[in-house]
């Protein structure tokens, strides 16, 4: 095993180009577990922690450009307003120690369906900034996950940053685990209201081979909100709409039975989380809308 320590992003890309099998390591919270437990013996470890810019973010414009290695703790503390869904998801990641090290780049690189960031990214809308010596490209998050622990990166590419749309409305994230802290998701759900486009987006974690959106549920809800004039009148969403949304979210799952939970439970829980997060976000939206009206 060789340990490569590029001092700059350019050096990192060059190293990755030269050694496409090199395993990038930043927070180490996935890679080191595999090494400690002898599940993985990469020929090269590519340490990205010397590259300062990966731990930085820019919040100007429409989206936040989040460096791949910004620790979850920083996201929770500093980006709660711009990225509320991701901030909530970050808070559910493992433990304080892990949140101090791990970042979204690692979640994306590993592409485990159980990664906590995925549902929030899917719901908010995001693009993955992938780069190699050949150049840079933006991969829409919807196209990023290609299979169980597989993603759209080419062997010579590294994740430099994620561009996440700044919230234009309430977002929520909820995850089920069988412990009240430090737990891997049995399943997870992210929801973002986008009042500017009058759309909702969802993200489901750990309930299909990859993180997925519940597209039919989104379409149903978009139509229902539109038809009922909900975006304008700020009325309470009717229970039947919430229920149908939940049912469609459950239907978007394609889960398995494993040691963490049954497929049947995952479908059920995603439905419950979908209904609850819809209620929370919508109540929040109504509250904001009411205040705006009051001022006007």
């Amino acid at each position: 095993m060789d340990f490569l320590r590029p001092a700059s992003w350019e050096e990192a890309l060059a190293a990755k180009a030269e050694h496409p099998t090199a395993v990038p390591i930043a927070g180490g919270t996935d890679v080191m577990v595999e090494i400690n437990f002898d599940h993985r013996r990469p020929e090269y470890l590519l340490d990205l922690t010397r590259i300062g810019e990966l731990g930085e973010w820019e919040a100007g414009g429409e989206s936040v450009r989040l460096g791949a290695s910004v620790p979850y703790t920083r996201i929770m503390e500093n980006l709660r307003r711009e990225l509320p869904g991701l901030a909530l998801a970050s808070h559910t990641v493992a433990s304080p120690q892990i949140r101090n090290r791990g970042g979204v780049g690692g979640n994306l690189g590993t592409a485990s369906p159980a990664g906590d960031a995925h549902p929030a990214l899917l719901a908010a809308g995001a693009e993955v900034e992938a780069e190699s010596v050949r150049g840079s490209r933006l991969i829409p998050i919807d196209d990023f996950y290609t299979g169980v622990k597989r993603n759209a990166l080419a062997p010579d590419e590294l994740i430099r940053a994620v561009r996440i749309k700044k919230a234009d409305g309430p977002q929520q994230f909820s995850k089920v685990g069988t412990r009240n802290a430090m737990v891997i998701a049995v399943c997870a759900f992210g929801l973002a209201l986008h009042p500017e486009t009058r759309t909702v987006r969802t993200g489901i974690g750990s309930a299909a081979p990859t993180p997925v959106r519940a597209r039919a549920a989104e379409e149903f809800l978009n139509a229902a909100l539109d038809e009922g004039g909900f975006w304008d009148n700020g009325k309470i969403i009717t229970p039947s709409v919430a229920k149908q949304f939940a049912t469609l979210c459950s239907a978007a799952c394609n889960p398995i039975d494993d040691v963490r939970g049954t497929a049947s439970y995952r479908r059920h829980a995603v439905g419950v989380m979908a209904r609850r997060t819809l209620t929370w976000t919508w109540e929040s939206y109504r509250g904001t809308a009411a205040r705006t009206e009051g001022v006007a």
Binding site: L88, H91, T92, Q172, F173, S174, K175, V176, G177, R179, N180, A181, V183, A185, V272, M273, R276, T279, W280
Partner: peptide
Amino acid sequence: VRQLPGGLSNTTHGEG
């Protein structure tokens, strides 16, 4: 949420 079932995972705000 720290005092609710589900804890930090933010699964309920009292519902259920």
